[in-house]
């Protein structure tokens, strides 16, 4: 009676048409001690399925290593930023120095012009003398 029922379910099991409850019944039957000798050959099958479900992975999940590459990313970002700031401010300082040099040069040039201008006015003073003499002569006439 019980055996016939099991055989029917077993047939449905192989056709993959048994319900979840029937499959559970089958599992319970074959994992119990009272398996009929007629069905003994199916025992290892269900025995193996239940045993295979107990196997465990022995390795730990190494998540820490992920962190390392994470900080590498930040370090590289920081490095690029520093480099860019460096270039920017370096250019700034260089520009300032260049401007100062140009200023000094310009001042020197202006100084030269002023010197020559002074010398020019000195010479122009003689022209005044000439004018005076000319007036004297004109007055005498």
């Amino acid at each position: 009676m019980e055996l016939d029922r099991i055989k029917i379910i077993l047939e449905k099991y192989f056709e993959a048409t048994a319900t979840e409850a029937e499959e559970q019944e089958l599992r319970d039957y074959f994992l119990s001690d009272g398996v009929s000798p007629e069905l003994e050959m199916y025992k290892p099958m269900f025995g193996y399925f239940s045993q295979a479900g107990k196997e465990r992975s022995a390795r730990e999940v190494p998540l820490e290593t992920k962190r390392k590459s994470f900080s590498y990313r930040w370090i590289s970002i920081a490095a690029v930023l520093t480099l860019m700031f460096g270039l920017y401010f370096g250019k700034h300082v260089r520009d300032q120095r260049e401007a100062e040099y140009a200023y000094q040069e310009t001042r020197k040039a202006f100084g030269l012009i002023a010197q020559n201008l002074d010398r020019g006015t000195e010479k122009v003073a003689f022209l005044g003398e000439f004018e005076q003499t000319k007036q004297k002569i004109l007055n005498q006439n």
Partner: peptide
Amino acid sequence: AEDATQEVLMKLWS
């Protein structure tokens, strides 16, 4: 199998 499991979990973590 351990390698594959690790690989999948790392992918999930990332």
